[in-house]
Design a protein around this nucleic acid. Structure first.
Lengths: 114, 114
DNA sequence: TTGACGCATGCCGATATGGGCATATGATTG
DNA sequence: CAATCATATGCCCATATCGGCATGCGTCAA
């Protein structure tokens, strides 16, 4: 083995900053590839490749519109991400205190305690 | 160029399934490396490497405890992930017959198809 | 000090990524 | 049909990843 799958996993698809940018941009509405590439400062083949990944994991949909191909957002796949990260919500509010507690314990370092 | 940075980005850190598993496991409390490896069915060096990535992006903290090294969760870094994905919440709740929220906004027309 | 234990690191191999570039494929128009 | 525009693909390169393995380093016990 070498590397885990990438193209079949939403978490991996959004690990790439440019792909996240694409998704954000698509919130404003459908766009043809060329326009996306232009607005994000990437080449057309580059945009197409990222869009392919996003399409394969179901985060975008495309439809033909004459000569063009319009890409649109399908954010449903992001829901698992939101829910997974939400599962840690209680922790990022407590993290400070808990870690502080650890540190306290450490600094005081009482073998008999804890 | 070849590949974007990975070790400096939380999105990339959690793109790896095993690392997500580690984080989930750590919600139950601190653990030494060996135990994590055992519970997740990975080798000790494998666990250490994943933990290193998680540590570098700040998702876990470690503290020495005698011969052992206990890893603990620091979920604060997951908050941006939650917020970013939350920015799409309205999209996965809306009807997806209409690809274009932009159009919806401009002319409050009802979609043609369902 | 020596030995045992716990963990981190280094090295290798296989792989797949992202970017650049050229070109193939598709669709529209004349 | 030919020419043209829009997009997708193929290919190559440089690189970073993950996994396995062996070993280094630090800590504790005897």
């Amino acid at each position: 083995m070498a590397r885990a799958a990438t193209t079949s996993d939403v978490f991996n698809a959004i690990a790439e900053p440019q792909r996240r940018d694409i998704l954000v941009l698509l919130r404003a509405g459908e766009r043809p590839v060329t326009e996306l590439a232009r607005e994000l400062g990437m080449t057309q083949p580059g945009a197409s490749k990222h869009l392919r990944v996003l399409r394969e994991v179901g985060l975008v949909r495309d439809r033909k519109a004459g000569k063009q191909r319009l890409y649109g957002l399908d954010a449903r796949g992001l829901r698992p991400v939101h829910e997974w990260s939400g599962g840690f919500e209680q922790f990022w509010n407590e993290s400070f205190d808990r870690l502080d507690a650890y540190v306290q314990d450490l600094k005081q370092a009482r073998p008999e305690e804890s």
